[in-house]
């Protein structure tokens, strides 16, 4: 009996990983030989990392039993403010680019935290459901950014910031090709490791699952449920700020109508594909990482197959529903 349960658990744990592997093989065949070229794979990872970092925070929010629809809009707002601040520092500090970048990035992460904290406060103290609160802040932050830029864009005046957005670390050789890890991918993996560890090995992680499973039991068990939920949104906000900083550097400009558009959907989709329960209570950071990569590989593969971007969206929708359906059947 114990042998069969062990097998079952293994399948449950690694089901998503197996799916990712299968998808990888399929993509290799369809996109032969371009897909498995290292530079393509690195590119896929880079593209995954922007929404991926947000999806990590989203995983915490969803485990807590909530949702955050405002992430894309907050990213645009935070990036706009950050670039403006960076340009101001650049002027004031007489062209000290390092100082300007440090200041800008700090402002983006701090503002991300503040926006998440605002969501968290409205949800816990204001006792308004997360869907409504973040639907509201989504609108507020998107239109604030559009107002600020008059629906245009904010260009960074720092060359170095753009270079930072494209730079890579950890160079290593595959055959005669030099491969290196882009900074966003590195950030994604480090953050994932930190958050996964937090979820599994600290009181906060345990309480987060408890609050998402049954908030009343958690409350009676002396868990400060408001504080636990507040921090889920605040952590998510910091993730959003991080993505904003990396994505603004990528283009070295922030186009307010497009920046972060639809990120909330991609982040939620990746989280759900990764096996986190929409109803809250349980979830996995590494599952979310797998979900993020799966979505990006599908897009990359369909691109290579020459499918129109519109049909790609249709396929993405089918994958989201299909993966949740399979998870339901397994239970």
């Amino acid at each position: 009996m114990s042998a069969t349960t062990a097998k079952k658990i293994d399948l449950e744990k690694h089901g998503a990983l197996i799916a990712l592997g299968a998808l990888f093989v399929l993509a290799s065949v369809i996109g032969w030989p371009y897909f498995i070229r290292p530079e393509n794979l690195v590119n896929v990872m880079r593209q995954s990392s922007y929404t991926g970092i947000i999806a990590l925070g989203m995983t915490f929010v969803i485990i807590s039993g909530g949702i955050d629809l405002s992430v894309g809009a907050v990213a645009a707002f935070v990036a706009s403010c950050g670039v403006l601040f960076m340009n101001w520092v650049l002027q004031a500090a007489g062209g000290n680019e390092v100082l300007a970048i440090l200041g800008g990035v700090s402002v983006m992460i701090a503002l991300g935290f503040a926006a998440g904290a605002l969501n968290g406060l409205l949800i816990t103290k204001g006792k308004i459901v997360p869907f409504i609160v973040t639907l509201g802040t989504m609108s507020i932050f998107r239109y604030l950014s559009l107002q600020m830029a008059n629906a245009g864009e904010f260009a960074s005046q720092s060359q170095l910031y753009g270079t930072f957005g494209m730079s890579k670390i950890f160079e290593f050789k595959v055959g005669d090709q030099a491969i290196s890890l882009p900074i966003p991918v590195f950030t994604l993996l480090v953050l994932a490791a930190v958050l996964a560890f937090l979820l599994d090995n600290t009181r906060y992680g345990r309480y987060l699952c408890a609050v998402g499973s049954n908030a009343r039991v958690a409350q009676y068990s002396a868990v400060r449920i408001d504080r636990v939920r507040f921090w889920a949104y605040a952590i998510n906000g910091m993730c959003v700020g991080t993505t904003a900083a990396l994505l603004a550097a990528r283009f070295n400009t922030v186009s307010t109508p497009n920046f972060g558009l639809g990120f909330e959907m991609d982040a939620i989709a990746a989280t759900i594909i990764g096996g986190t329960a929409m109803a809250g209570g349980r979830g996995s950071i590494w599952g979310t990482i797998i979900g993020v990569f799966m979505l990006q590989i599908i897009q990359n593969m369909l691109n290579m197959a020459g499918l129109s971007p519109y049909l790609q969206g249709v396929v993405k929708g089918i994958v989201i529903i299909g993966s949740v359906y399979i998870q339901k059947q397994r239970q």
Partner: peptide, 17 residues
């Protein structure tokens, strides 16, 4: 409703408080 979390394991329930 207020005592145990049914989706939590024995260990996680006992040490929740």
């Amino acid at each position: 409703g207020a005592g145990i979390i049914t989706t939590f394991t024995v260990t996680r329930n006992v040490t929740l408080v």
